[in-house]
Write a protein that binds this DNA or RNA. Structure first.
Lengths: 344, 344
DNA sequence: ACGCTCGATGCAATCGATTACATCCTGCCC
DNA sequence: GGGCAGGATGTAATCGATTGCATCGAGCGT
């Protein structure tokens, strides 16, 4: 009563295992009548080819691993969907892993590919373990999405974080804001560094020198947004607008601002980054930078398929972002609200 | 320059492949000196055992698939984390799949297990394909989480949806609400049916007959929440409170209520279900039913490990939920707000 | 010193499907 | 009718690691 193998089917159909394999893989290579008998036997036994064996022989798994920075950020879900769609279409499966931006975990997933659990890796993580950089030639097929590692030559699908961040700041400037705070991502990382650079360049273009006290480091999480606002309040620096490097941080910031009795956008305008699903259901609906998540996923997978097919490497792709103006930003008040600590 | 195999290592270390395998698998079976030489050779070649070959032989993959109803619902992320933690600890990997509650996709994932891509399947989907019910004896190891299929005897980790929904309704009743609307999940499904039953039983216990016009079917999504409110407004039925079968729907509903000029909780109190991450950052913070997501995931994986280890089946588990009261519910007004359509 | 035990290691079968090559058979042409 | 082409099918090698069994040799007891 064990699992049926190709031999079980062969016996039942009265043919050799080779014929069974051919009947299933290259139908035109066997006679219709034989094929019918084989298919009948397959149905009767409930046979499903053991993919371990098949892959061992064919040296492919038709599976790719999608490794994300932090799986609890819903932002990545939409990307997964894009990857999955392109993969499904090409007969690939997708495995999602949570890197938690931890070198060990990342290396673990790279080893999974080396161990032939999967054919390739789509990376959306903030770090690239040093240990791996030294053995670039041994690396499995890798596509980078969202993030960029300029020192590595790997196919990449990304967005222009500098320009996007700058656009967010320009929007606030147009509304008359001058004291604009910024909650960054984890700072040694490119993604965070670029958005910060965009913020600075936006201010600079308007002739404003960035006040370092208005820049607080976060880590893209909800809680980081809350803490950042608390930190800004503690230092007592006043501001009328806030640009957060992720929607989650924007949400956290708004929730904390409200807790301090400040209204958004009445007292403080807030801009996020990502345009996650809940952004427009939030109260107020969040003004943010929209990223074409689904397409980023799809393109990344397309590149992976190309890579695995030994096609000539496609050029790196920079996807378009756009500013979505909703209710969390408004023109600055004539007399900016004082810092909440000094309020009442 | 191809990938190193166990033979490459064996040659370099001057031993047989068997010894290499043993040095790596059961260190106590080889002499320390031999082992040292083998490990040296492994390091030198960068050898990583091919898991296809290993698993083919050992008939296990140490991978489980976590199949969820809809991957874009962030609710599942926390569950994934629980599963992943328990899995990692036991040396298992976790693959997450998106079922989209589609029979074909579900069957596809079941076949992945049959094809030995994974050892077992943790299901968190609303449907159980009819086709599979007829071949129960052939099914791979399956654990059901969150959902229940009473007609199937499979290890299950769930919550008491009826009691939890009832508790939500009781909270609203205590605040004086009498006209309580309910947005259900997709209705043929157990999860949705149970929460609806809890809603009805809560009302009944207070001597109130449910007004069918106040019950609108949804599908757990943000958009379903918005549409449901629109639908309620169209029919012109007035209500002072709303119980949504998911937080996402609650968010959608609140956003739509606001768009109609109603305040929450001023005009309408809203209770959700799930307590997703953003629930307390929302404005107003959402009153909802908290589910121990992380533990549900962990327990489900624990059951799977037991199942794979051929341990005697553990009893089904019902996890505790609790009502979390936040800012989206308030005592009913003396004179309930009229239906927004008839307003002004 | 002989024989026996037991630990370390090697040999080769094995997991299950794929596929190069061999074999057989049918049918066609001269 | 003989020979040969070509299609259908079978045989067996192969992918790479694991593991039962065989072998070898060191150590020990008498």
């Amino acid at each position: 009563m064990s699992v049926p193998t190709i031999a079980t089917v062969a016996e039942l159909a009265g043919v050799s295992t080779a014929t069974v394999s051919r009947a299933l893989q290259r139908p035109d290579k066997v006679q219709p009548e034989t094929r019918r008998r084989v298919l009948e036997a397959v149905a009767a036994t409930g046979f499903v080819p053991n993919s371990q064996a098949r892959n061992l022989r064919s040296r492919a798994t038709r599976t790719v691993i999608l490794l994300v920075r932090d799986i609890s950020n819903p932002f990545y879900l939409e990307i997964y969907k894009g990857v999955e769609e392109a993969a499904m279409r090409a007969g690939y499966k997708v495995l999602m892993g949570d890197a938690r931006d931890d070198d060990e975990r990342i290396t673990h997933y790279v080893d999974m590919v080396r161990a032939r659990h999967a054919d390739g890796l789509i990376l959306m993580v903030g770090r690239f373990p040093e240990a791996l950089k030294t053995e670039l030639s041994r690396l499995p097929p890798i596509v980078i999405a969202l993030e960029t590692f300029p020192e590595l030559v790997l196919p990449t699908v990304s967005i222009d974080n500098i320009a996007a961040a700058r656009q967010a700041v320009e929007h606030l400037l147009e509304l008359g804001h001058r004291r604009i705070a910024h909650i960054t991502g984890p700072l040694p990382e490119r993604l965070a560094v670029d958005r910060l650079a965009g913020y600075r360049s936006g201010l600079a273009a308007a002739g404003i020198t960035a006040d370092e006290a208005l820049i607080v480091e976060g880590d893209f999480s909800l809680d980081a947004g809350r803490k950042a606002v608390r930190r800004l309040n503690e230092t007592g620096t006043s501001f009328t607008a806030l640009f957060a490097a992720s929607d989650q941080m924007a949400f956290g910031a708004i929730s904390e601002l409200r807790a301090c009795g400040l209204s958004v956008p009445g007292d403080v305008s807030v801009v996020g980054f990502d345009d996650i699903v809940l952004a427009d259901a939030f109260v107020p609906p969040l003004t943010t930078i929209h990223q074409p998540r689904f397409d980023i996923g799809r393109q990344a997978m397309a590149r992976m398929i190309g890579l695995l097919g030994k096609e000539p490497a496609a050029a790196n792709l920079v996807m378009e972002t756009r500013l979505v103006v909703r209710g969390s930003t408004a023109p600055v008040r004539q007399h900016p609200h004082p810092n909440p600590r000094t309020k009442e």
